[in-house]
Structures are given as structure tokens and as C-alpha cells.
Amino acid sequence: MKSRFIVTPILCTGCRTCELACSFTHAKDGKVGRSRIYPLAGGFKDLYVPVVCLQCEDPACVKSCLVDAIHFNENTGAYEINPEICVRCMACVAACPFGCSLFDPQQNLVIKCDLCGGDPACAHFCPTKALTYKPIAV
């Protein structure tokens, strides 16, 4: 069984704890990383949606990468960018229709959600369980 993010926007309060958890989990060399998850306004009153990479099948980021820097991790089910191979051409940033591949100017890296190696910190820290990560039948 594959684990997936389950986003329940009705429960989200927009507290941005997931964003903090993500930034601190991806800190490197004493610099916090840019968050891979964005709780954004859902278009209705008091409705927030945590927008995060949902690891699509046949993703646009992998198709657009001209140097094959994005690999599928069999163990976690995440598409991960290898920062050593990435040439920062921004093709995936422009191509992702959900805007979940982004550029971190401080660490000078193109980043996307890597599911924290199979145990995403954002889901752990969500106080209202609007964002959970659990096995589901696909």
C-alpha cells in the first residue's frame, strides 16, 4: 500500500505550522530552507488549503527536466531532485501546473517536496489533522 498526503481543507486553520516544520526540516548549513508547502487562501471565508506536491503519476517536472535530475524514490514514492545534478534551468519550476516545484534563492537550489524520506514533518505537526500522511489503497 502506498502512502499519500491526505489534504482536508475544511479542517485547515491556516496556522502555517506545516510551513515552519518544512523550513526547519530542510535547513542546511545553518540556513533554513524555503518551505515546500504553502497554506493558501481557498477562495471562501476561513478556508485554507495546504498546497503541497502530491507526487503525480507521469509528472511534468520529470518530463521537463533535460538533465534527468528528478528521480522516483521507490521506497517513499516521492519524486526527488538530486541537487548535484540539477543545473537550475528552471524548466520544472515553469512546467509544474500546481506550482510545487520552486526555487530557493537562499540555498540556491530548485526544491520540491521529497516526503522527508517517507515521514513528512508537516503532517506530524499539523494540529488539526488537515494534513495527514497515511497508506491508502490506490
Binding site: I10, G43, S64, P97, G99
Partner: peptide, 29 residues
């Protein structure tokens, strides 16, 4: 060459995220 639809390039990543949030919000309601 990579089969990415041309209209994916109409928005930048930030606007794409906002659009995604609005669409998912509609579905949630």
C-alpha cells in the same frame, strides 16, 4: 520536445499555487 502543454507556462509557480488552492477550496466546499 517534452510534451508539456503550452498553457502550463502562462502562470508562474506562485500563481499556479494560488490557482491550485482556489480549485481545491471549491472542491472542499
Amino acid at each position: 520536445h517534452r510534451n508539456i502543454p503550452q498553457d502550463y507556462f502562462e502562470l508562474n509557480d506562485e500563481s499556479h499555487r494560488k490557482e491550485t488552492a482556489l480549485n481545491l477550496g471549491k472542491i472542499a466546499i
